[in-house]
């Protein structure tokens, strides 16, 4: 029980550091740490498949993509845009209002039952694979089409436009 609170505290601290770090590379590195704490949350809930997928896909693939894009773009200190102070205050205020609204609506629920893992096999690869390929077979195939179209779209968008030919 104690472990959850320590890890939850760490994930909140790292996610605050993500949005407050001046250097974008630092905020990507803090994002990696945040996702690592999420992986620990999944392990604590015995969702082993999701823990592995979160580790490989998020920390491996997506953040490497972010880092590579950042290096391609080659930001320097002067080009880092800064918002005016009042806009920052308004942004923090707006986010805080959202948090207060969510938390206070949670208070109306009263006390809740603890999260108890009834079936220890719930998050294992074997069980999830059976569910995925029986009930969710069509969405699984559709998601492969989605990934393919995303790949084609990314290549199409990121390639340089050719110089328009001079009209004869």
């Amino acid at each position: 029980m104690q472990t959850f609170y320590i890890i939850a505290f760490l994930s909140i601290v790292f996610s605050i550091l993500v949005i407050s770090a001046k250097n974008p590379v630092h905020s990507i590195l803090y994002l990696i740490l945040t996702f690592f704490t999420f992986t620990i949350h999944y392990i604590l809930m015995n969702a082993q498949f999701l823990a592995i997928v979160n580790f490989i896909v998020y920390m491996g693939a997506i953040l490497v993509l972010f880092l590579y894009t950042l290096m391609l773009i080659n930001l320097n200190k002067e080009s880092e845009p800064v918002k005016p102070f009042m806009v920052k205050v308004a942004a923090v205020f707006g986010g805080g209002i959202l948090a207060v609204a969510l938390v206070s609506s949670l208070k109306l629920l009263g006390t809740s039952a603890p999260v108890v893992l009834k079936d220890p096999n719930l998050g294992l690869v074997k069980n999830l694979g059976k569910v995925l390929f029986n009930e969710f077979l069509l969405p699984f195939e559709v998601s492969s089409v989605l990934l393919l179209s995303a790949m084609v779209g990314a290549v199409l968008l990121a390639t340089k436009d050719k110089e328009p030919k001079a009209t004869i």
Partner: peptide
């Protein structure tokens, strides 16, 4: 996994 058992859903 036994460590998580007492954390409320809230």
């Amino acid at each position: 996994t036994n460590t998580i058992q007492a954390v409320p859903l809230n």
